[in-house]
Amino acid sequence: MSLELSLTQKPDVPLEADVISPDVMAGLSNKAISALEVFHGNEKATIGDFFAVKGDGTGDGAEKIILKGDLSKVKHIGTNMSRGRISIRGNAGLHLGAYMSGGEITVAKNAGDWVGPEMTGGRIIVKGNAGHLIGSAYRGSQTGILGGEIFIHGNVGNEAGNTMKNGLIVIGGNCGDFAGVNMKAGTIIVLGHLGQRCGAGMRRGSIVSMNEAELPPTFTYACDYNPSFLRVYLRRLREEGFKIDETQITGRYKRWSGDSIEMNRGEVLMLAS
């Protein structure tokens, strides 16, 4: 059994739909789901105003929620979710999976900015591109994500993994500027190119790139080597469907330590060409 929500009317302004979550919809009837409150801009509305709901949340119905249509203007999908799966067959809007602690969200196309902000567990998979600030801390917050995995198969914007403290962010394509800025720990792997000033202000943690990038001047070069842990990670990513070739597993990486304006325990690993 699964629950299916098809977008019947594209919202004119962003729709704040944090109720689309297995935790909220579990146990609710079809009617109750349709009646769940959403904000359309500054106006109250219901799920039923925008979606055709098929199935209900009784039993394990809400453990898998399928969303159809172009949801690029639907924000906060899966907020606070702790379990189950949300499968988005098109695009997803901003703040996807904010604060999530468990379960899995998959997006068949693109996602907006703020994918998985301050998440603590679970997994978000975006087959297309994502915007800025994936896996980040909200403005004014001390820490970003504390756990979980964000897999973006396409490109992402700036400030990926801002202030992250744990967890894994993988970007299959290119990454904008300031990846891992102020990072406290955790891992960011970029299979494409890094933008400018990656790792600025990082304390601990790892940023891995398959291409050389220009680093802030406060990073120092250590050595070229083949890190065993990266072999474990890349094997895992291959199982997740990322394209990892053998030279990336067996290859040598340049290790840069930084950021020396902070604790200097972080590292940027770049595949040596």
């Binding site: 756990g147 894994l168 065993s228 842990f229 990670y233």
Partner: peptide, 13 residues
């Protein structure tokens, strides 16, 4: 030493 967590497992480097 560095710690890495992956898929519920923690590794030490």
């Amino acid at each position: 030493q560095l710690s890495k967590q992956l898929g519920g497992k923690r590794y030490w480097r």
